[in-house]
């Protein structure tokens, strides 16, 4: 497979790879690095990719795995204990756009406290814009399993935010 063939087959997935990577790492530089890593990996193994039937599913899986590896290596830096997260919400409900952004960052920290599978499903669904079907395929789960994980994750986030507001 030459460069042009490779580009026409895989380049259209650039945005998808970035979204999946960013959804998991939540870091623009990391996400860009992962996009590059994914393409490098694909380029190096391009001669054996003829057996891949579902390019999109394959690429999402590669991106997700690389992003999770990077995320795990940085987890200690990102995760905050719940008490610390609560302190961030002490000021109550915030309306302005800047505060909304701050709120988003804090929900991100709440997501970090979820079990890994719930985290991944929530990130891929909401930040990676993947469909339930795509997530099920890349995580080798049924769509029903994905919906259950999504449900548990969303409920937990809601409960934690409610507790913060109660305080």
């Amino acid at each position: 497979m030459d460069g042009n063939e490779f580009k026409s087959r895989f380049l259209p997935f650039t945005k998808l790879i970035y979204k999946v990577s960013f959804a998991i790492t939540r870091d623009k530089e990391d996400a860009e690095d992962i996009v590059q890593e994914v393409f490098e990996k694909l380029w190096k193994s391009r001669d054996s990719l003829s057996s891949v039937l579902n390019d999109e599913g394959y690429i999402i899986t590669v991106a997700r795995n690389l992003a999770l590896d990077r995320y795990r290596s940085k987890t200690k830096r990102i995760i905050l204990p719940f008490a610390e997260v609560s302190e961030i919400y002490e000021d109550g409900f915030i309306d302005s756009k800047i505060e909304q952004k701050e709120k988003l960052i804090n929900v991100e920290k709440l997501i970090c406290t979820l079990p890994q599978s719930q985290q991944t499903v929530i990130r891929l669904r909401h930040f990676g814009d993947l469909s339930i079907f795509q997530i099920a395929e890349t995580m080798e789960l049924t769509q029903e399993n994905v919906r259950q994980l999504l449900s548990r994750g969303r409920r937990t986030i809601k409960e934690k935010i409610e507790k913060i507001y109660e305080n």
């Binding site: 380029w43 986030i157 809601k158």
Partner: peptide, 28 residues
Amino acid sequence: KTDSTVLHSLSEETEVPQGLENKISSLI
């Protein structure tokens, strides 16, 4: 209030950096 916070937080649109595709194309 809580539902709005959850939904807004989870509906953030991911901005893909401009020129990323060209950058990857040059790399290839």
